[in-house]
C-alpha cells in the first residue's frame, strides 16, 4: 500500500528510514535516532505537521535495542497524522531534543527522562517532572523492581 507521507519521508531520508508500516491510515515509520531531529524538522517545515501530539517511550527488555521512542505528529491544516519511532540502545540512551521545533516537547521529554532514563540532547531543563528529588532509578523500566518503594518521608510500620 502506498502512502504519500511515508513515500515522501523515505525518498527524503533513504538511509535513515529503517521500516515503514501503514494500516488503515495509521502510518508509522521506524527511523534512526540520529536522523530524528532532521526528519522532525522536515515534517514540521515542509509537510505542515504543526502539532506534536505525544512523545513517549517503551521498554522492550531484553531486546536490543532496548528502548523505542515514539512520537505522534499531527497536522492541523491537512488533518494528517504520522508516528515516528526510534530504536534507542541502553548503553547510549540519548536522543536529540525536539524542543527547538515544538515547545510542547519540553514536558514530554522530561517525563520520558523521568520514567525511562532516556536523555535528550539540547533540552533546556532536563529534570524529573513526576517523581520527586532524591528518587533513584526510572520506574517504568522493566528492570525496576515491582515492589520497590522509595518513600519521601518516614512511614510508620
Amino acid at each position: 500500500m502506498t502512502s504519500y507521507l511515508l513515500d515522501t519521508l523515505k525518498s527524503r531520508f533513504p538511509e535513515a528510514v529503517l521500516e515503514t508500516h501503514a494500516f488503515r491510515g495509521d502510518e508509522t515509520a521506524l527511523i534512526k535516532k540520529e536522523a530524528l531531529l532532521q526528519a522532525a524538522a522536515f515534517l514540521r517545515q515542509e509537510l505542515g505537521f504543526d502539532m506534536l501530539m505525544d512523545l513517549t517511550a517503551a521498554d522492550y527488555l531484553p531486546r536490543e535495542p532496548r528502548f523505542e521512542l515514539v512520537c505522534h505528529f499531527y497536522s492541523t491544516t491537512h488533518n494528517y497524522r504520522l508516528r515516528l519511532k526510534c530504536p534507542v540502545e541502553a548503553h547510549d540512551a540519548a536522543v536529540d531534543s525536539l524542543t527547538p521545533l515544538w515547545a510542547g516537547a519540553n514536558w514530554f521529554e522530561r517525563e520520558v527522562y523521568d520514567m525511562f532514563g532516556i536523555k535528550f540532547n539540547g533540552h533546556p531543563d532536563l529534570r524529573r517532572i513526576l517523581m520527586y528529588d532524591g528518587f533513584e532509578g526510572h520506574p517504568l523500566r522493566k528492570d525496576y523492581p515491582l515492589k520497590k518503594r522509595q518513600p519521601r518521608m518516614l512511614h510508620k510500620d
Binding site: 513526576l130 517523581m131 520506574p139 520497590k148 518503594r149 518513600p151 518521608m153 512511614h155 510508620k156
Partner: peptide
Amino acid sequence: DNYATVQGIDKI
C-alpha cells in the same frame, strides 16, 4: 500497589 502510591494514609 506501585512505586508512587502511599499504601494507606495511616502510614503518615
